[in-house]
């Protein structure tokens, strides 16, 4: 793929390799499933702490797999009415659609929503202005938190929108912080990472860094 980037005549190689990658990705699903089974069967067999959760994982995994592959409750598609299993994977009313709608969706949404509770708790306990840098971080957080809601508009609504001080309105400040400070910081990090990857890759390609082979030399 590296060669295909630099030599136009070999451009097609990159596409071929990308296609292989997708075939490998399909096999990875099977390997992933096999690995999941092996890992959790070992846990159940040796009855390690929390082996009951492994039972739940395996039962959920196998049940979902059977329901999905079996296409229970799914009728053949309108285009191919005589071909069994030609219907879509998870239409409404099908068993797989039910699993998706009433189990997977609420469970994953609940997990994500719980984040708000832990963030609130962490903000109360850990977000302290212990030094000047922490104070700056705190002030930025306040501006963004308030500027992303109507509260920011109300709090600084006394500053006329057309005045020279309009940039001090919280909604404007939050946009300014995101577009200027955040962009500059993130670009610096991205460029730094890219340069680091390039230099590490060169060191490996030129044999300067052999640590990945288990050598103690840098």
């Amino acid at each position: 793929m590296i060669v295909s980037k630099f030599i136009p005549q070999t451009e097609g190689w990159g596409e071929d390799v990308a296609t292989w990658f997708n075939i490998l990705a399909a096999f990875a699903f099977v390997l992933g499933g096999g690995n999941l089974l092996k890992l959790h069967l070992q846990k159940i067999s040796s009855k390690v702490t929390g082996w009951g959760y492994s039972v739940i994982i395996l039962v959920s995994f196998i049940a979902t797999l059977v329901i999905g592959l079996g296409k229970f409750g799914i009728h053949p598609s309108a285009e191919y009415p005589n071909v069994a299993w030609s219907g879509p994977t998870q239409p409404e009313g099908s068993a797989f659609g039910w699993v998706y709608e009433y189990l997977l969706q609420p469970l994953t949404a609940t997990m994500f929503a719980m984040l708000a509770f832990y963030i609130a708790s962490a903000a109360f306990r850990a977000f302290r202005a212990k030094n000047f840098e922490a104070f700056l971080l705190l002030a930025t957080a306040f501006i963004i938190l308030l500027g992303r809601t109507i509260a920011g508009v109300f709090i600084t609504s006394w500053i006329p929108p057309n005045s020279p001080f309009a940039f001090l309105r919280l909604e404007e400040l939050s946009v300014y912080i995101m577009q200027i400070f955040n962009t500059a910081g993130n670009r610096a990090i991205m460029i730094g990472i890219a340069l680091g990857i390039a230099s590490t890759s060169l060191k490996i390609l030129l044999g300067i860094d052999r640590s990945y082979l288990g050598s103690s030399e840098d």
Partner: peptide, 10 residues
């Protein structure tokens, strides 16, 4: 609430 909690914590 988050702003209030941070202020209270500080």
């Amino acid at each position: 609430l988050m702003v209030g909690l941070i202020i209270l914590g500080n």
